[in-house]
Write a protein that binds this DNA or RNA. Structure first.
Length: 900
RNA sequence: GCCGGAGUGGCGGAAUUGGCAGACGCAGUGGAUUCAAAAUCCACCGAGGCUCACCCCUCAUGAGGGUUCAAGUCCCUCCUCCGGCACCA
């Protein structure tokens, strides 16, 4: 009896059963450490092989677990990792956890459960989910940013930045969220409310740690050129860095208390200097108090106070109308003689000028700048044209009364009254009313006036960046503590490296302090320390680092994750870096990718890494969306309230009212969220992997259609059937098909189909076109199942290897059943013969005057003459009585006969 | 407003350099198998027309124009959707 049960268990299944096959192989890979990757110097390391570092953006282990968007990118990288191993690469493919984050801390505030407990629980859940998909990560390299063994080195890198003078304390305005009791990063606040919880936030100045990313602005911009990244991401980074070239120009204040003081403005259009009819200072500008006359004092003060209460946002988005106040003061425009009445121009303050950019002061040229124009119109300030637009512009934007007027008249009108034209001219033209550069085109005029100013010590060419320094501290508990102490005299210094990691104090109470002090200020014992160098009492920094810190360098820790002597080994870094392919969502286009590049460049300057850039190639996967429905009033309807009535017609179950199918982000309220666990349970991990890749191109967003999942599952069943007899009514059920038991070449036509598939899959993997690669596999299986007894053993084997990166569990099972004891993970990728990828004969379309008229069957390599002859024969009927004007023959493609 | 990206059957999507538009999958229709069903297999499956049996014809890749023997693909104008930035002088 016992024996019988054992025998039954050992009997291989006849049917494709993912729930048996998948855990079996996941366990085998884990036990045998199939995907453990040796480093240079380790046993088993083969230096002769080329390297491939393929990285996923590591996830935040949220309590909600994985959604189907995560496995999309992870599956793509896993397929490529497996493929590259089979192509003979040393593949580095790690995974870890970006585990600091606000949710765990908020949960701690509500429940008192320590964030590390919540975090570990979430990590183990999400790790289970990731492992259930059969990804080939080297789990011996797993990292967790909240692990002291990891953040010790995050703190160490901060110390390097500090020592280089790239970290400093500054009083800056930050978002304070009363309800959450913390400061939030700009990106965590949307329209003045917290992203999480939707609580109101206010701007207030606080002392914060800043990192001097602006010192690297030029290199961060220039080195983008060398990267194989999506152009859209590069453009976003360029915009964010916002380089603009122009000039600084000094204006001297005329009269009053500040007479003679120089006021410097930044402009990208020094060529319009003769058109500057007023000046504007940001309300926070230090010269405001000095230039304001006693009569204007009250009005200016009121405006400055009002502006300080507005957030940056209110100053921009809500302010459709320009506001400002005249200070009563004047300045001399340096291009005019002091005695010239045009030289003296009024100084205003207005909040459309920002203190944080350039010098916080501008020269206003209303004729050639839309913002200045709006302001000038509002406050009736003079508008002087100094750039003559091209004729085409004048004709396209004439004053209302001057439509169809000739250009000469338009030019005269422009000189007299540019504001009467339908738009203000802000582009390049010819300098006018500008003696120092009269008649010069804008680019030359800029050079001329900049040189003119420099000669007289009145200005110089300057480059400005929009990029600001990085606000690097948060008033939170759950983050890396700064390795910094503050002395009684207000100075600060780094702690000793031997003290690392500086661990977070254990706390029972995570509630906000109720003041602006961070939660760590409550850990009194931890707070007080002494400076070992001087023996003086000192206090620890109570801010913690932002979540970005840990993710700025995790790709480096993966190289040498268990090293407790250094953050990573030098030789190891040299071997693996840079990351060859980095895959993740486009939401990190700017922040994470810019911060990581910044740190990497600092490490490069310190000689700690060997490459200038961390991520050579970047690929953004698209969003996975879902279907929902919309009724006539535009109301969104959850999926489960709708049924389909044939071809694209959907109606409400309750009323029968017809609704429209639309695509949305997955959301709980629309009940269209897909949980990967459910898909694995119903169809298996290989089906989930395959469906995610089959949906469409990796980089485009596409809707999840539950109805399509069984389609790819059926394909896997068919693939199984190529190898295994699955008819349970037959005595040989569950066995290898008879034609596969002995070596054999298989069918010659099928061999061609196989070579076609190998070629297509190989080429498609090289261009990351997974959907079409899978389609090629399907075509082969369809071909093979036309007569499954014709499949030869090596054909089956090569097909299984081809399938392996996509559906690794199924492939391993079939590989084993084909008689192999070892995993196929390191088997050589099957080669193809170009000659066998084309059929012996080909069907060629024949067109007459571009319209399809016939098809001819010719040998694949038929000559042009042969095609010509056959084609004319085929369309003889259509050619009757007509003269052939021309004959186009595209070899192997088509013939087009042009007749008159 | 500015900068990107995209519009192809009922649905997801294919289509090397301009060369048969709709690969592959889903859904649908008809049939085989079955006591029946599931599963599986076979056939059909853009729209319209034709003496819808066979052949064949016309139209069709968001709209309109253009270049070309030939346009989903190249050029111009416009529309719609998605993403990013938003007074940066």
């Amino acid at each position: 009896m016992l024996q019988r049960i054992t025998r039954t268990r050992e009997m291989p299944s006849a049917k494709y059963t993912p729930s048996e096959v998948e855990p079996k192989w996941q366990n085998a890979w884990a036990e045998q450490k199939t995907f453990k990757t040796p480093n240079p110097g380790d046993a088993g390391f083969d230096a002769a092989k080329p390297k491939f570092y393929i990285l996923d953006m590591f996830p935040y282990p949220s309590g909600a677990g994985l959604h189907v968007g995560h496995p999309e990118g992870y599956t793509a990288t896993d397929i490529l990792a497996r493929y590259k191993r089979m192509r003979g690469f040393n593949v580095l493919h790690p995974m870890g956890w970006d585990a600091y984050g606000l949710p765990a801390e908020q949960y701690a505030v509500q429940t008192g459960v320590h964030p590390s407990i919540t975090t570990q629980k979430n990590i183990s859940n999400i790790k289970r989910q990731i492992q259930s998909l059969g990804f080939s990560y080297d789990w011996d390299r797993e990292v967790d940013t909240t692990d002291p063994k990891y953040y010790r080195w995050t703190q160490w890198i901060f110390m390097q930045l500090y020592k280089k003078g790239l970290a400093y304390l500054a009083e800056v305005p930050v978002w304070w969220c009363e309800a959450l009791g913390t400061v939030l990063a700009n990106e965590e606040v949307i329209e003045g409310r917290s992203e999480r919880g939707d609580h109101p936030c206010v701007r207030r100045p606080m002392k914060q740690w800043m990192l001097k990313i602006t010192a690297y602005a030029e290199r961060l911009l220039a080195d983008l050129e060398s990267l194989d990244w999506p152009e859209s991401i590069k453009i976003q980074q360029r915009n964010w860095i916002g380089k603009s070239e122009g000039a600084e120009v000094d204006f001297e204040i005329a009269g009053g208390a500040a007479a003679g003081t120089r006021m410097t403005v930044f402009t990208t259009r020094p060529d319009t200097l003769y058109g500057a009819t007023y000046m504007v200072l940001a309300p926070e500008h230090p010269l405001v108090a000095k230039v304001t006359t006693p009569e204007q004092q009250a009005a200016v003060k009121a405006y400055v106070v009002a502006a300080s209460k507005k957030s940056d946002l209110a100053r921009t988005e809500l302010a459709k109308e320009k506001t400002g106040v005249f200070t009563g003061g004047y300045a001399y425009n340096p291009v005019f003689d002091r005695n010239d009445p045009k030289a003296k121009i009024p100084i205003w303050i207005a909040d459309y000028v920002l203190m944080g950019y350039g010098t916080g002061a501008i020269m206003a040229v209303p004729a050639h700048d839309t913002r200045d124009a709006e302001f000038a119109v509002q406050f009736k300030l003079p508008i002087v044209p100094v750039v003559m637009p091209p004729d085409a512009w004048l004709k396209a934007n004439p004053p209302k009364a001057m439509k169809d007027t000739e250009v000469r008249a338009l030019r005269e009108a422009y000189l007299k009254a540019p504001h009467t034209f339908s738009d203000f001219f802000v582009d390049d033209g010819i300098a006018i009313n500008s003696p120092a550069m009269e008649g010069k085109p804008t680019p030359e005029a800029k050079k001329a006036i900049t040189a003119w100013l420099a000669q007289r010590g009145l200005g110089k060419a300057t480059v400005n960046y929009r990029l600001r320094d990085w606000l690097f501290s948060r008033q939170r508990y759950w983050g890396e503590p700064f390795p910094v102490i503050h002395m009684a005299d207000g100075s600060h210094k780094l702690i000793d490296e031997k003290e690392l990691p500086l661990q977070l104090p254990e706390m029972a109470d995570f509630k906000p302090t109720g003041t602006f002090e961070p939660p760590l200020s409550k850990a009194k014992d931890w707070l007080k320390t002494t400076d070992p160098a001087t023996g003086q009492p000192a206090t620890r920094e109570t801010n913690t680092m932002p979540q970005w810190a840990g993710s700025c360098w995790y790709y480096l820790r993966f190289l040498d994750a268990r090293n407790d002597k250094a953050a990573w080994g030098k030789e190891i870094e040299k071997y693996w870096m840079p990351v060859d392919l980095y895959v993740g969502g486009a939401e990190h286009a700017v922040l994470h990718l810019l911060y990581a590049r910044f740190w990497h460049k600092v490490l490069y300057d310190l000689g700690l890494v060997s490459t200038k850039e961390p991520f050579h190639r970047l690929f953004n996967q698209g969003l996975i969306t879902a279907f929902a429905y919309k009724d006539k009033t535009g109301r969104l309807i959850p999926t489960d309230e709708v049924e389909e009535k044939g071809d694209g017609v959907f109606v409400l179950k309750a009323s029968g009212e017809s609704v429209e199918q639309i695509v949305t982000k997955m959301s709980k309220s629309l009940r269209n969220v897909v949980n990967p666990d459910d898909v694995i349970k119903s169809h298996g991990a290989d089906t989930l992997r395959l469906y995610e890749m089959f949906m469409g191109p990796l980089d485009s967003s596409k809707p999840w259609n539950p109805r399509d999942v069984p389609g790819v599952h059926r394909f896997l069943q068919r693939a199984w059937r190529v190898v295994v007899e699955d008819d349970e009514s037959k005595p040989e059920a569950g066995q290898l098909r008879a034609n596969l038991k002995a070596a054999g070449d298989g069918d010659a036509e099928l061999e061609r189909a196989l070579h076609k598939a190998i070629k297509k899959v190989t080429q498609d993997l090289d261009r990351m076109a997974f959907n079409t690669a899978i389609s090629a596999l399907m075509i082969f299986v369809n071909e093979a199942l036309k007569d499954v007894t014709k499949v030869g053993k090596t054909q089956a084997e090569r097909f299984v290897l081809l399938l392996a990166p996509f559906a690794p569990h199924l492939a391993e099972e079939l590989w084993q059943r084909l008689g192999h004891a070892k995993s196929l993970a390191y088997e050589a990728w099957p080669p193809f013969d170009e000659k066998l990828t084309v059929d012996a004969t080909k069907e060629i379309p024949v067109q007459v005057n571009g319209k399809l008229r016939a098809k001819i069957v010719v040998p694949a390599d038929a000559s042009e003459d042969e095609l010509k002859a056959k084609a004319q024969e085929a369309v003889a009927g259509s050619l009757e009585g007509k003269a052939i004007a021309k004959l186009f023959v595209v070899k192997g493609r088509l013939v087009n006969v042009v007749v008159k």
